[in-house]
């Protein structure tokens, strides 16, 4: 899968409270959540971004609560992937579970600026900064997680592989 989009840059410790503030958590429809994506870190984000765009951040992206509403809001508003130096644990898991692509790549973050156009090949982990003519390789996923990604998320993975009859 190859994405192409413009970079929106953020700092370290972007937490789930600013990605989707709790005042919007009285609903859980992805389309509703998407309207408030990144509300408390950049209130203009949803008007500035176009579907396919890429969120780029420093360390510990998605720290804080376990609300799956955070990766859901990012996915539903059309962000194609998030590239960061590192991700918080629960956010990382949630994103993989719902099929929201994340890439860990310090070099890409170091060598890209807001507004740059990137091309990302999810299967190889290659990130091309078209604006600067540079390319980088993201940290590979562990085998086990690739299984979930290739299945199309945890629900499909479980349906396919669960040993148990959970009906």
């Amino acid at each position: 899968m190859i994405f192409r989009g413009k970079v929106h840059k953020f700092g370290s410790d972007v937490n789930t409270d600013v990605i989707i503030p709790a005042r919007y958590l009285n609903v859980s429809e992805p389309g509703e959540l998407a309207k408030h994506c990144m509300a408390d870190v950049d209130s203009q984000f949803t008007t500035k971004m176009v579907p396919g765009d890429i969120i780029m951040a420093e360390t510990n992206f998605g720290c804080g609560s376990s609300r799956e509403h955070a990766p859901l809001a990012i996915k539903a508003c059309g962000v194609s992937c998030v590239i960061a130096r590192s991700f918080a644990r629960i956010f990382f898991r949630n994103a993989i579970d719902i099929g929201m692509p994340l890439l860990e790549c310090a070099a890409a973050v170091e060598n890209s600026e807001a507004g740059d156009i990137l091309e990302v090949d999810l299967s190889s982990g290659e990130i091309n900064n078209i604006s600067r003519g540079k390319s980088f390789l993201a940290n590979p996923y562990p085998e086990f997680m690739l299984g979930i990604i290739h299945a199309g998320g945890l629900i499909k993975y479980t349906k396919r592989y669960a040993k148990h009859n959970y009906h």
Binding site: S65, S66, E68, N94, I98, G153, T158, Y166
Partner: peptide, 28 residues
């Protein structure tokens, strides 16, 4: 809920996850 880790106070291994993980845990 991310603060599920509270229960470690009593010597349990307790950890927070998202809703999809919890759905799978509830089923399996």
């Amino acid at each position: 809920d991310s603060h599920t880790c509270t229960y470690g106070a009593l010597g349990a291994f307790a950890t927070g996850m998202g809703s999809t993980d919890i759905a799978v845990a509830m089923a399996t």
